[in-house]
């Protein structure tokens, strides 16, 4: 009887350890803690080019993450990308003339949307639109422009 009891205790400890490990993986290792950031409101912005932006990319203001991208779609008439983002309810005082720009974290890092606040007294609410946007910088285009300007310089010197 005692033997049975110790065996049960050990099996219980094993299963508890396994579930603790799963819980640890879910909470500490994965992004579950970032997912449950509560309700928010959706705002959309149109970009000419979103570069490498993906769904779940961060939305940051002054470098602080305030939301994330929830949907990226394409407008067939204007040929623009429509990016929908979810911003936390705790950040509900974003002026409606806010400027949205796609930045890259580090030289090769992931891309995110940076918001620069405007001066308006009106705030963005659910379904609000950001009209002032700047596209992602595409590295090839910059290099192309650089080479082009260099070539022009060389031409004018002769």
């Amino acid at each position: 009887m005692v033997q049975m009891r110790t065996m049960e205790i050990m099996v219980g400890a094993f299963m508890a350890a396994g579930f603790v490990a799963l819980f640890f993986l879910a909470m500490q290792v994965s992004n579950l803690s970032n997912l449950t950031e509560g309700d928010g409101y959706h705002i959309t912005a149109r970009f000419d080019n979103i570069g490498g932006l993906k769904v779940r990319s961060p939305v940051a203001m002054a470098g602080v993450r305030i939301g994330r991208v929830t949907k990226i779609s394409f407008d067939n008439t204007t040929y623009e990308a429509i990016v929908t983002m979810l911003v936390d309810n705790s950040h509900n005082t974003i002026p409606d003339d806010t400027f949205a720009k796609i930045y890259t974290a580090g030289l090769l890092g992931e891309q995110y949307i940076g918001l620069d606040p405007g001066g308006s007294e009106e705030f963005l609410t659910e379904g609000g639109k950001i009209s002032l946007t700047q596209s992602a910088l595409v590295l090839e285009e910059i290099i192309g422009q650089f080479l082009f300007s260099k070539a022009e310089e060389g031409g004018s010197n002769e």
Binding site: F14, A17, A21, L22, F24, L25
Partner: peptide, 16 residues
């Protein structure tokens, strides 16, 4: 069937 996923989770967690 029950032990294997628990052991794998334990392995990953301890590895991290």
């Amino acid at each position: 069937l029950i032990s294997m996923p628990l052991l794998a989770a334990l392995f990953s967690a301890i590895g991290v």
